[in-house]
Nucleic acid binder design. Structure first.
Lengths: 187, 187
DNA sequence: TTACAAAACTAATATAATTAGTTAATATAT
DNA sequence: ATATATTAACTAATTATATTAGTTTTGTAA
């Protein structure tokens, strides 16, 4: 019964490592307890359920992704900003597969911080689009389109949906450029 | 021990209904057995594992989706065809949530029919793009872009990623139109 | 030093997938 | 029609999971 000094952070760290290496499905109470060298029930002193642990992974993933994106587009605008955004998004999903996977699981319970993070991402995209001087409803449509593109590419790639002898990032950037091209000639 | 006349089809039908109503996670041996009014082990006379049942759902989903799309774009080309394709794809995902969810689970085992169905979908899109007279590599990029868009919209919507007071189909069609606009002015 | 809150534990419960081995219904062959 | 073989469905058991209840023990603070 020696205390191992467990806390929420250590558990989530172990969970993220497990998610990245083995997939979110493999993040189980049993596997976490083994990795942390405690008995399964011990985790319940820090989290109410497995679901709560997975939600915590998702929250940290969203924040890290948002943070990465905000930094990467700082000082950029227009097409250059959108291309950077897209490239970094795909890169994040590739480098942190389990973490990204967690962020796209439907939330069982509405969460304030998650909603705020989503909102920040949308606001960021709205900003990036400002130089195109779109009507508000057009900008809202396009924000959805951009999110769908980056998420679509990331999750199709993860699911093995692309033949890998043809560069995926190139396809993503081609698509974004085409969209920007469409914007230039919109009127 | 009266025979209830179970077969692979009946099991998959029950599984699809369960998936559509409760989500793919709820497609379990136990739940299926209860719905079909047999004991759990009986299902193993028809499928080797739960994974195999879920894979069968995915296969049927992909085929039904492909079939729907091929029919819906028959006789159409260019922008009109792409808009129809996108609309029908999103509609399929909305009308058959569990079935669609199953189709996007990573396949644990490579499957010939699945690969062929994917290939058919790609070929279909290539055809739809023919009227834009793109270079081959451009067409391949764009096929990926289109798949990512429709999948991205479908799965973000399913995950509750959009505020629903703003029409999602409109956003999808706006995005596709913008892409087409970009194509027209590409050179 | 004592008291208390919290961390980790053991033991138990419930549900899941799966396997082995059995029984009985059906189809097939003589 | 009867005998045989196949196979659908079963019972019982195994393994693994999450979770809860209740206990022990540690560390900290009065």
């Amino acid at each position: 019964m020696p205390r191992v000094g467990l806390d929420r952070n250590k558990i989530v760290e172990a969970a993220i490592e497990l998610a990245n290496n083995m997939g979110i499905e493999q993040v189980t109470i049993a596997a976490l307890a083994k990795n942390l060298d405690v008995r399964p029930p011990s985790l319940y002193n820090h989290f109410a359920s497995l679901t709560e642990i997975r939600m915590q992974i998702a929250k940290e993933g969203m924040q890290k992704l948002e943070d990465t994106l905000i930094r990467s587009v700082a000082g950029k605008s227009g097409e250059e900003a959108l291309l950077t955004f897209a490239k970094q998004y795909l890169n994040f999903a590739n480098q942190n597969p389990g973490l990204y996977e967690a962020t796209i699981q439907p939330m069982s319970v509405p969460d304030k911080m998650v909603e705020e993070t989503s909102k920040n991402m949308i606001d960021l995209l709205i900003q990036l689009l400002s130089s195109f001087s779109l009507e508000e409803h057009e900008a809202l449509h396009l924000v959805r389109g951009l999110r769908s593109i980056v998420h679509g590419f990331s999750s199709l790639q993860r699911a093995g949906g692309f033949q890998m002898d043809f560069n995926v990032e190139d396809s993503l950037l081609y698509t974004i450029k085409l969209l920007c091209n469409g914007l230039k000639f919109e009127k």
